[in-house]
Amino acid sequence: MRFIKMEQKSKNKEYIKLVIILLVLFGILGVFLLYVSYPLLGTKTVVLATFPVDPFDLIRGQYITIGYEIGRIPLIDSAEVGDTVYVTLEEDVNGTSRYKSASLNKPSKDDVFIKGEIKSVSSESMRIEYGIEQYFFERGAKFPTRGMEVKVKLSNFGGARIVELLQDGEPIEIEYENKSLTS
């Protein structure tokens, strides 16, 4: 007999290995999931004004890149590319949150602020990214992009996650082309 059936002891060892691997891999996935969903557990919600464009990522799929109004703000003292910056927001009469001030130090918890990273600096302004510049959707999606706003949840540390896209204060409904098996 070429193959000798695995002994019970070895079998148990294999099952233990399986349990260890599933615990470790799902542990990593779980921690990652908690990390990325943490801002969504926050109580602060803001609506941000945008200027979107439309690319495609081979690895990650179809998405729009969203340029925010707060993506370019006035330059602050001693700010350098790569620094973390906290942008304090203030709501206007239409309920859209706009730039109020910026600091390299974390504002108080009472302020509504969003954390970003300085990507470039010019003589009077700086470009900031907040990690919410992409919104993913399916190929063949149709939705209006003019006057689009984005509803964002903020954590106490300023971390942000997109909740939904808005137009005139209402959620945008994304329509998808009907797909056949050959499309």
Partner: peptide, 13 residues
């Protein structure tokens, strides 16, 4: 799974 989670939460590309 990791890339899908990143996509679902609209993480930066």
């Amino acid at each position: 799974s990791i890339f899908l989670i990143a996509q679902i939460f609209n993480l930066s590309t």
